[in-house]
Design a protein around this nucleic acid. Structure first.
Length: 394
DNA sequence: TCTGGGGTCCTAGGACCC
DNA sequence: TCTGGGGTCCTAGGACCC
């Protein structure tokens, strides 16, 4: 989906069309804007002057999405809001409204599966679709079906998307970026050298900033240059699995299936504080945030029908270093107090001298709450088996 | 004035078992 | 003085993605 969050917001606030708008930020309340709705009017009648501006934002946070006019100023996803405000102070800043984005996410995915049922969910704004056996899926290399999907999504939701059609997920993902927004790119196997090899390695889904930097150190900047390296050279420098994988992707090879169903592995809640907190000085505030996070995860588990047995915490210190601790229980749980208890034990095992910026709680080792194992104690050794009894001694 | 939140997967060492 | 090999589970950290 093109600039998904921002595009959804523009549906509500059409008066913002063509303006630099960024979505992001912390605890700003949606009703800061809603309150400005004129008598008898709608959201679309809110005067431009009532919208909050980026330059007036003082908190922590990053941009999740920027409209294309905002991107022209050099602001983009994951950029700190303070930095963005320097680049484009006049941009309008809207708070994230995940519930609304999820509604539109469900809507566009429904449109897709009604046309092509083999769809893999890749998050709120992205999917893979297997066209292979869809009637008409082969016409013009898939372009006809892509057009139909694009048109149907626009009709149903008012949103545009960009589609890449290719022999596999690896190339399709890259192709989807060739013609943004609202574009379609069809890439054939024989286009590898002309269309894929000139791209920077970073465009490969799975090559991030670290791997890219290391590749660059060896003079490898493009996918073509990556393809030119011997497989064994790559294995020698990046390890068996990564090296072999890099060789495969550079040659456009990817045999991963489109996966339509999957089970969650973990659920978590985390929060960045408005200011750094200290374990001793801000003990009570931290304590209530901690408890709240535990209950939120428990709620999420129950709502989605899962229980887990590995309880973990995550801290981010003021220097941005991260520490995690976890503990595996002898039984599955979706209970807030039980999670709080286990997470509290984890907290005792982590250094708490530095000021904290973020606190998170995670539950892994999930099974469906209605499954047989969810109700049973897990046989075998668990470090957390008797922790409930001994933990209170500390 | 830095840098969100929710995820997955991989690696690596140690414990433990056969 | 010399101590296997293979497997699984647990834990901590880190890369990466949307």
């Amino acid at each position: 989906m093109d600039a998904f969050y921002a595009s959804v917001e523009l549906l509500r606030y059409p008066q913002l069309k063509g303006l630099p708008v960024v979505i992001g930020g912390g605890r700003r309340r949606e009703d800061e804007v809603l309150r400005q709705v004129p008598e008898g009017g709608t959201l679309a009648d809110i005067p431009l002057a009532s919208f909050p501006l980026l330059k007036d934002y003082a908190g922590r946070g990053v941009i999740t999405t920027a409209t294309y006019p905002a991107r022209a100023f050099g602001v983009g996803s994951a950029m700190g809001l303070m930095k963005a405000a320097r680049l484009c102070p006049q941009a309008i800043l809207l708070p994230v409204d995940f519930d609304e984005y999820r509604r539109f996410s469900r809507a566009f995915k429904k449109v897709i599966t009604d046309i092509a049922p083999l769809m893999e969910d890749r998050g709120v704004d992205e999917v893979y679709i297997d066209f292979t056996d869809v009637p008409g899926g082969q016409r013009e290399g898939g372009r006809v079906l892509a057009r139909l999907i694009q048109k149907s999504i626009l009709q149903a939701t008012g949103l545009t998307c960009s589609i890449g059609v290719a022999p596999n997920k690896l190339i399709a993902k890259m192709a989807s970026e060739f013609d943004k927004p609202n574009g379609i790119s069809v890439v054939y196997e024989e286009d590898l050298q002309t269309r894929i090899w000139p791209l920077p390695c970073r465009k490969v889904n799975g090559i991030g900033p670290k791997a890219d930097a290391k590749l660059q150190q060896h003079g490898i900047h493009t996918i073509g240059e990556l393809a030119a390296r011997e497989r064994d050279w790559l294995i020698g420098h990046f390890g068996k699995a990564t090296g072999a994988w890099m060789h495969e992707v550079a040659w456009g090879r990817d045999d991963r299936a489109v996966v339509t169903e999957s089970e969650p592995v973990s659920m978590s809640r985390e929060t960045t504080f408005e200011r750094d907190l200290h374990a001793v000085r801000d003990r009570s505030e931290l304590g209530s945030i901690f408890t709240h996070l535990c209950h939120k995860v428990a709620e999420d588990l129950r709502r989605k029908g899962y229980k887990g047995r590995t309880i973990g915490i995550k801290l981010r210190y003021d220097d941005f270093k991260i520490a995690t601790r976890d503990q595996t229980l002898g039984h599955y749980t979706d209970d807030g107090p039980a999670i709080r208890q286990a997470a509290g034990q984890c907290l005792r095992r982590v250094p708490l001298e530095r000021p904290l910026r973020l606190l998170g709680v995670r539950v892994g080792g999930l099974v469906r709450a209605d499954s047989a194992e969810a109700g049973r104690a897990v046989p075998g050794p668990h470090t957390g088996e008797s922790a409930g009894a001994t933990g209170s001694l500390f």
